[in-house]
Design a protein around this nucleic acid. Structure first.
Length: 886
DNA sequence: AATGTCACG
DNA sequence: ACGTACGTGACATTT
């Protein structure tokens, strides 16, 4: 097989990579403040292309300096270009190192550009009968393409390329690769700052070349041209055209000192590359490198750590800890309700006790330490530890420091549930991430004793070392109270709710499911009939082809991969063809079936007929919880059909009921409080229907005027819009009015609620000034994009600046209520148990006879969780199932 | 692993 | 002129 040669135009690819990632210029910075976006992009390109080409020879050519034979010929060549941004030029030396670490030579030659080096080598390769791939960001190089030379030009970004061989050049430009030079001669090149023939662009140039072949050919026949402006320009600019042609011609005989045999591709130099990735902070690439090689190498980089392996005979070792201990129980699966245990570590001050034998935790010696109220516990993920130990019949008491929770409060942005990664974020590198120890996907494996124990000891040590630092940082941010009185106690409340679980009646789900399946197959047949063929309705691609190509329905919206078939689009097409309505119905049923019937059935524990969700306490950017495995925060309610799913959620005892209370309009009440807007506050103090009240104001209605349904609906959308960080476009889209009308609404709203307007201006200003915003309890969200040059990114950050204090404070309030609730239920001696939190709603189960008590107690706890300038309002309901609690 | 869609607050 | 509401998770399909 022919040898393969890879020639890369280093400068142009680096430029492309830099500008492709420029919007995120602030995201790609390593610890030393070096920008790394272009390096990152270059690396990505290299990985892909090396994998694709698998070259025998490879080189990356760079431009040597400002002056070349072209500037000698034409002093203004590439003149007027703005200087290379310093953010890019500082990256060039690293790109060269990166290339070398990939086992590829770099080369530059005084007086010549990278193009010429590539052209010369391409010619040599072609003559030797090799297959060559040229990678560049510059279309001019397509002139080099032959049957044996493919020119890959990077498209948006650097990872996608368009491959030019002579056939593709012909398809695209209708000329040969050699004629590309003539085309450039006629057109000139604005970016290289040389002119061609006046008023001749791509279209005209191609037309002329198709007829006369070359620039020379054109001028040989210039006399035969009909009198025209174009002819005048051609004659006038003849010299320029020939000059431009020369400038555009790549020199294929540059005096380079290297031959193909000097540029053999050596393959990746793993050690060098690891060192470089480390320096650059390229974590994902580090992880990607061969797992074993890396873990060996990283292992060597970690400090040696001592530990004692616990067994039945040395359990008295734990007696040395009487003040505080650091504890970590290792679980390979993220679901701590069900995961197996692979080991544990406990200790402090570099005295680490480790073991794989989980049963040891249940020994009197260890159990008494864990359950002690005098010995403080430092952990990573208190809730996971609490639930895990509960499975072993151990009650974990006196939790004090949670590295995960503290880290989340300090900065919600770069968070992870991996101890190693979190430690790295805080500058502590002497611990590995789980992924680099265990590998991932198919490679996942639990290592042998020594490696596992070292990993565990390093983890415990990381918690220990970061403890003091993070506690100080919380103090600096005035977040100590948030940590101690809200998040840490809440993690305990949540662990109880998760452990309790909620009873789900599988029979109810199954009988619903079989009805749905029946209806689904009817709908399916109907849709196939209307379509005239069978296809996969669940595939947006296939559905799009049927609707928009076969049936010719009007295309309303496109996605980046094809036609959009989302609800808002289909709804507009409803009247055009009956199939649309059927597809919508089919989708609705299939969603219920797959996500809520089958999905829920899969996660019911066979031992207790319950589902045990996990609340993620350190995930959202606003301070809300999220719920997974299963997600119990998105069980259907809006449409009756879906709402019936809630009939399967039952109390776990005979004679009990489901009881549910929710905050009414909590976000708008928080808005009224935070903005201090008198008009908005008044509406809540008077307990008015808030959307009607807003309607009265924005439509300028009198106190006795009727508010019609549509006015209220629109006002409701405006209220939502305000909370989300409104834009006229968004509002218009949402309620189907013109942008102009939406703008009017917003303006009127701001006139009527000047305090809200003031708040928006203030908070966006504050975010710009300090780089973050805060909630009522000093929960903090950093907004790095607030300084972005990119309009979209910046606007998004500005909207979050105003939304986060609202959504986040509402989250704070219900969290406080939950902590108080757990105590209040206990103090009142009730059997009632809190089961679920759905952002502004709490769901309980209780004996029927406790319901009257709950109806007073629960709202009282909830509405007094905090004291705002407006009252909080709570509404309750109860019934035999969650469905009936409405 | 990414994308589109749709369920919730 | 830019291109849009805020916060989530699960599923099926496609790459």
């Amino acid at each position: 097989m022919a040898k393969k040669v890879l020639l890369i135009d280093g400068n142009s690819v680096a430029f492309r990579a830099f500008f492709a990632l420029f919007q995120q210029v602030d995201k790609f910075v390593n610890q030393d403040g070096l920008h790394t976006g272009a390096i990152f992009g270059f690396n990505k390109m290299l990985d892909i292309i090396l994998d694709e080409v698998k070259p025998d020879y490879a080189i990356v050519a760079f431009d040597a300096g400002k002056t070349t034979f072209r500037t000698e010929m034409f002093p203004d060549y590439k003149g007027g270009r703005s200087k290379t941004p310093s953010e890019l030029s500082e990256q060039m030396p690293f790109i060269k190192k990166l290339v070398q670490a990939h086992g590829i030579k770099t080369y530059e030659l005084p007086n010549y550009e990278a193009d010429d080096i590539i052209g010369t080598l391409a010619k040599e390769a072609d003559n030797s009968g090799y297959m060559t791939t040229v990678v560049t960001g510059d279309r001019d190089l397509t002139q080099l393409s032959t049957d044996n030379v493919t020119v890959s030009v990077t498209k948006k970004g650097v990872t996608e390329v368009e491959n030019y061989d002579p056939v593709h050049v012909m398809e695209k430009y209708e000329i040969t690769p050699a004629q590309i030079i003539d085309m450039k001669g006629l057109m000139g090149d604005a970016s290289d700052n040389y002119p061609g023939v006046t008023k001749v662009g791509e279209k005209t140039a191609i037309k002329l070349l198709k007829q006369y072949g070359t620039i020379e050919g054109i001028y040989e026949h210039i006399d035969e041209f009909k009198q025209s402006k174009m002819k005048e320009h051609l004659i006038e600019d003849q010299e320029l055209a020939f000059q431009a042609k020369k400038l555009a011609t790549i020199n294929q005989d540059a005096p380079i000192e290297i031959k193909l045999s000097d540029i053999e591709f050596k393959g990746i130099q793993t050690e060098e590359l690891i060192e470089l990735y480390r320096q650059l902070d390229f974590k994902s690439y580090l992880a990607k490198l061969d797992g074993e090689q890396i873990s060996l190498d990283l292992d060597a980089a970690l400090s040696e750590i001592e530990f004692t392996v616990l067994n039945q005979d040395n359990l008295n070792e734990v007696n040395q800890f009487n003040d505080e201990i650091t504890l970590y129980v290792e679980m390979p699966d993220s679901n701590y309700h069900t995961s197996e245990f692979t080991g544990f570590v406990m200790g402090n001050n570099s005295h680490w006790l480790v073991s794989r034998d989980i049963d040891l935790l249940q020994s009197d010696e260890i159990k008494s330490v864990l359950e002690s109220n005098d010995i403080k516990k430092n952990v990573f993920n208190a809730k996971a530890m609490t639930v895990a130990l509960n499975r072993l019949g151990i009650k974990l008491n006196n939790l004090d420091f949670d590295l995960l929770l503290a880290s989340y409060l300090l900065d919600t942005n770069d968070n992870s549930d991996d101890l190693g990664q979190v430690a790295h974020e805080h500058g502590f590198m002497d611990v590995m991430s789980d992924e680099s120890v265990y590998g991932k996907g198919a490679k996942f494996a639990i290592p042998a004793d020594q490696e596992l124990f070292e990993h565990l000891a390093h983890k415990a040590n990381a918690i220990d070392v970061l403890h003091e630092k993070l506690v100080k940082e919380l103090e600096t941010n005035e977040q100590t109270a948030l940590y101690r009185t809200i998040e840490l106690p809440l993690s305990n409340v949540l662990s109880k709710m998760e452990i309790r679980g909620i009873h789900v009646n599988a029979d109810t789900l199954e009988s619903m499911g079989s009805k749905l399946i029946e209806r689904m197959s009817e709908m399916k047949q109907l849709i196939y009939q209307e379509a005239g063929e069978e296809f996969n309705i669940n595939s947006p691609k296939q559905l799009g082809e049927i609707l928009f190509e076969k049936m010719g329905l009007p295309v309303i919206k496109k996605t980046k991969t094809g036609y959009s078939t989302a609800v808002d689009v289909l709804e507009k097409l409803r009247a055009d063809a009956p199939i649309v309505d059927n597809v919508l119905q089919y989708r609705q049923i299939s969603k219920l079936q797959s996500t809520y019937i089958e999905g829920l059935l899969k996660v019911i524990h066979s031992t207790d007929q319950k589902v045990h969700t996990r609340y993620l306490q350190t995930l959202t950017q606003t301070g809300r919880l999220s719920s997974v495995d299963p997600n119990l925060q998105n069980i259907p309610i809006r449409l009756e059909e879906g709402r019936k799913i809630r009939q399967a959620f039952e109390p776990s005892h005979e004679g009990w009921e489901i009881f549910s209370s929710d905050y009414s309009q909590i976000e708008l009440r928080v808005l009224a409080h935070i903005t201090g807007d008198k008009n908005l506050q008044e509406a809540f103090i008077e307990d008015e229907d808030i959307h009607a009240s807003t309607a009265r104001r924005i439509f300028k209605l009198g106190p006795n005027d009727e508010i019609n349904r549509d006015q209220r609906r629109q006002a409701k959308a405006v209220n939502f819009g305000i909370v989300y960080g409104i834009s006229d476009f968004g509002l218009a889209q949402n309620i189907g009015i013109t942008r102009k009308q939406a703008k009017m609404f917003i303006e009127t709203y701001f006139e009527e609620f000047p305090g809200v307007k003031q708040y928006i201006d203030d908070i966006v200003g504050l975010a710009h000034q300090q780089g973050y915003v805060e909630t009522l309890t000093n929960r903090r969200r950093y907004l790095p994009d607030i300084h972005a040059k990119n309009f979209n990114l910046r606007s998004f950050a500005e909207r979050t600046a105003m939304n986060t204090p609202i959504q986040g404070s509402a989250a704070d309030i219900i969290k406080i209520a939950m902590i108080k609730m757990e105590d209040a239920l206990k103090d009142a001696g009730l059997q009632a148990k809190m089961l679920l939190q759905i952002h502004d709603e709490l769901v309980f189960e209780a004996p029927a006879e406790e319901i009257p008590t709950l109806e007073k107690l629960v709202p009282r706890i909830m509405d007094s969780a905090v004291s705002l300038d407006v009252p909080l309002k709570v509404e309750s309901a109860h019934g035999k199932t969650w469905y009936e609690a409405k």
